Simulated scan of single mutants.
Amino acid sequence: MTTIKISAGGYEFLAEAHPDAPQTVAAFLGLLPYTQKLIHVRWSGEGCWVPLGEYRLLLNEEPIGFENHTSHPSVGDVLFYPGPYSETEIIMAYGACSFSSKLGQLAGNHFLTITHGKENLRALGVKTLWEGAQDVRFELA
């Protein structure tokens, strides 16, 4: 099992790669270490996201599509939304979350599950809500 360390807002988390999203995981591993900005979600409830605009995650030069996509991530689930109906993004649920955009309901590939540090997800979410964008880094543990 592949373990990813996620550092954001002064908190550290460990996440396991989800076996039902092998293409998303493989393509994402190729980006590591990956640093971005994490902001609070706009319409999805209790979550934080990394907006990626028109970016397309590729595996063997082919865009990643939908694998084990869901609109209702649980606390600690990390989803990758490949587009095309809204911008590409990574979303991380810290509470009640229903993944959507200004265009309506979306579904993302559940590719990581936070297994350690989960108790700090709400604190990260609240910090991001009230203090603004936080640096986030994904790397192999």
Rank of each mutant, 00 (worst) to 15 (best):
Q23I: 05
T24D: 04
V25K: 11
V25C: 12
A26V: 00
A26F: 03
A27H: 09
A27Q: 09
G30P: 06
G30Q: 03
G30R: 03
L31I: 05
L32H: 08
L32F: 08
P33L: 06
T35S: 14
K37H: 02
K37M: 00
I39F: 10
H40P: 04
H40T: 12
H40L: 02
R42I: 03
R42N: 06
R42W: 08
S44A: 13
S44W: 01
S44Y: 05
S44K: 04
G47I: 06
G47T: 05
G47D: 14
W49D: 00
W49H: 08
V50Y: 02
P51W: 12
P51F: 12
G53C: 07
G53N: 11
L58H: 14
L58A: 10
N60S: 14
E62I: 12
E62S: 14
E62C: 12
G65T: 04
F66L: 06
F66M: 08
F66S: 09
E67N: 08
N68K: 10
H69P: 02
H72A: 14
H72C: 09
H72I: 12
P73M: 01
S74G: 14
S74H: 14
G76R: 06
G76V: 01
V78C: 05
F80K: 01
F80I: 01
F80S: 04
P82A: 13
G83N: 00
G83P: 05
G83S: 08
P84N: 02
S86G: 05
S86F: 01
E87K: 03
E87A: 01
T88I: 11
E89T: 02
E89K: 10
E89L: 13
I90W: 00
I91E: 09
I91A: 05
I91F: 08
M92E: 07
A93S: 14
A96N: 11
A96K: 11
A96W: 04
A96R: 09
C97E: 04
C97Q: 09
S98L: 05
S98E: 00
S98I: 07
F99K: 01
F99H: 06
S100Q: 15
S100E: 11
S101K: 00
S101Q: 10
K102W: 15
K102S: 15
K102G: 15
G104V: 07
Q105P: 10
Q105L: 09
A107S: 09
A107Q: 10
G108I: 07
N109A: 11
H110C: 15
H110Y: 13
F111A: 01
F111L: 10
T115H: 01
T115N: 00
K118I: 00
K118V: 04
E119G: 13
L121T: 11
L121C: 13
R122V: 12
A123L: 12
G125N: 13
G125K: 07
K127Q: 15
L129A: 08
L129P: 05
L129N: 00
L129Y: 09
L129I: 07
E131F: 13
A133H: 13
A133Q: 15
Q134S: 02
